[in-house]
Every structure is written in C-alpha cells, then in structure tokens.
C-alpha cells in the first residue's frame, strides 16, 4: 500500500463515477458530439466534480487530453491577475493536436474575488472558440449572474449511503480488506457523503489492520481533528481566558488552521457541549457575529479572541 487512495481509486471514466447518473448521462452526450458549452459543476465536497471534469476531458480528447487541459484552483490563485494573465494565456492559444478546443478546469471558482469574476466573464466570452471552461464550486449562487448564465449548470447531489457503500466496497475488494457491517456504518457516518473523506479514513484504518470495524474508523476519524479545538471552547467556558487563547494560537500556528476553519468547527461543536442550553444559543449568536467580523476584519485571531472573551463571560464561572 503505497499510494494515496483518493488518487488510486479516483474513477477513470464517466461510467465509474458513482451516484450522479443524471449528470453523467448529459456529460456523455458531450463526448459523443465532441462539443460542449462552458460548464458549471455545483455541489458539496467529495461528490465527484473534479473526477467528472477529468473523466469528461479524457474521454473527449483521448490520449492528447493532458496537452489541452489546464487545472487551476481558484483558492490558491484568486486574484484578478491570475484571470488576466494565466487563464488568458492558456485560453487564447489554439488547441494542440486534433482537438476542437481546450478545457480549463477552475476548481473552487466561488473563491474568486468579484473583480476576478468580472474579468473571467469577458475571457470566457472572447475565447469560446479555442477554450471551454468547467467551473467548479460548492454554491453556484456565489458566482456572479453573468457567469452563471454563460454556463450549463450541473448540480451534483450529495451521495446517498448506497453510492458510498458501492464505492468503498470496490476499494475493499481491490485491497483485500474486510469491512465489518458496523465498520461500514461508521464510515458512512463520519464521511457524511464525502467520498474523499471516506476514502482517506478507510486508508488510514487499513494501515492499522486488514479488518475495518467501527472502532478503527472512529479512532482514525478523530485523529483528523485536533483535540485542542474542543479544549479551547471548554477552557473558555470554564473562565480561563489566557489558557484558551494559548490553545487558539496552537490551532492557528501549529496546525495552520484558518480563522474560518476554526469558526466552522467551533460552531459544529457547540451543540455537543455540556453547558446550559441558554448559554449555547447565546454563544451561537456570537459565533455568527464573529464569522461576519472575520470577513470584514483583518486579523482573524483578534476576532476569535473576542469570541473567547465572550464565552468566558457567559460561561458563568468567571469573575464578574
């Protein structure tokens, strides 16, 4: 076992893509006609957007697909210069070998700034002859209307249990693993319809033994999440601000979590805390305000500190 399974078992053809029958049928018709409009793939993480884009291009272009395919992640390069330079340079040159056009796959397109989106709109229009775009995003509404109207929009459903099972069984068979029934249920639960997550957890569980049961899965899935996050919340509610702030710094610096990640996980964890329900709802409201301020502000640490100071105050253990 020496590959990253999310790559090793990424479906190679459109037929292998699980759980998106409607989408796949339409994409296959593009392959047949060797033509397609600009596409937008919208849907939750790990439902096959990238996989479908790769498979579509491969099937359409055959062996020369790599020469005419350019993959970019807008969250790595989100500024307007990227659209003006990189994307434009690729888009305006003629396709290589016997293909009718090139394909740019722009992942996480919803993280492009609005300026960049506006620039993209013009680029898409101007170079349609040589280049088609596949934009991928979690929410199509985060992209400006003019871009949406230039694309055929495909909505990727979150995967149901049977789809995920089907895919995981395929891996188990190939890796000669035994997945117990409760192990499979646990995988489904922790993955929450995200095949990437399910596959990663399965690979790590498999590195500990060839039988995958619920215990192995839960053990693995908890290693993905830093303990410090919950500790930070509990510590703040107990009234120990400085301790909680140290944990925050650890999350930001040692784990490299972004402010948004921390806020999202804090929000997810509130419901499981062992505190009065009235306190929970106060904290939740403040979390919302904090996320809003994160977007507006400049330093996410300061904003989350303010949240922690609030939690200390409402926690009821603190000096008043």
């Amino acid at each position: 076992m020496n590959d990253v399974w999310v790559e090793k078992y990424r479906p190679k053809t459109l037929d292998e893509v699980v759980g998106q029958t409607g989408v796949v049928e339409r994409l296959k018709s593009y392959v047949e006609t060797m033509n397609m409009p600009h596409l937008m793939f919208a849907g939750p993480a790990g439902t096959g957007k990238t996989t479908s884009a790769l498979a579509l291009t491969k099937e359409m272009f055959g062996e020369n697909w790599k020469l005419n395919f350019h993959e970019m992640n807008a969250s790595d390069e989100r500024g307007i210069d990227v659209v003006r330079n990189k994307i434009k340079d690729f888009a305006r040159t003629a396709p290589i070998a016997d293909t009718p056009f090139k394909v740019i796959f722009l992942d996480e397109a919803d993280s492009l700034t609005s300026d960049a989106q506006a620039a993209l709109r013009r680029t898409m229009e101007k170079y349609t002859n040589t280049c088609r775009f596949i934009l991928s995003c979690n929410y199509s509404s985060k992209l400006i209307d003019p871009i949406q109207s230039r694309c055929a929009v495909f909505r990727f459903k979150s995967l149901n249990a049977d789809d995920v099972k089907k895919y995981l069984r395929r891996i188990a068979l190939s890796e000669k693993l035994e997945v117990t029934e409760d192990g499979m249920d646990a995988l489904l639960y922790v993955a929450g319809g995200d095949l990437r997550r399910a596959t990663n957890i399965m690979q790590v569980s498999a590195s500990m033994g060839t039988t995958i049961d619920a215990e192995a899965v839960y053990k693995t899935s908890s290693t993905g999440r830093p303990e410090e996050l919950k500790d930070m919340m509990i510590t703040a509610l107990k009234g120990e601000f400085i301790e909680a702030r140290n944990l925050l710094d650890k999350l930001l610096i040692n784990y490299g979590l972004s402010g948004h990640d921390i806020i999202n996980q804090v929000h997810r964890n509130v419901f499981d805390l062992d505190v009065d329900e009235h306190i929970k709802i106060k904290v939740i409201e403040k979390i919302g305000e904090t996320e809003f301020r994160l977007i507006e502000g400049s330093n996410s640490r300061i904003q989350i500190e303010a949240l922690l100071a609030f939690m200390v105050s409402v926690g009821g253990h603190a000096r008043r």
């Binding site: 400049s298 330093n299 300061i302 500190e305 100071a309 609030f310 200390v312 105050s313 008043r320």
Partner: peptide
C-alpha cells in the same frame, strides 16, 4: 474582570474591522 475583558475585546474586534 471577565466582563471588562469581554467589552475590551469587543472594542478591539471593531478596531480590527
């Protein structure tokens, strides 16, 4: 006092905005 701290951090958070 934790309430004083909370208000102070709220002010700093607004400054950061």
């Amino acid at each position: 006092l934790s309430d004083d701290r909370m208000r102070a951090y709220d002010a700093v958070s607004k400054a950061d905005i």
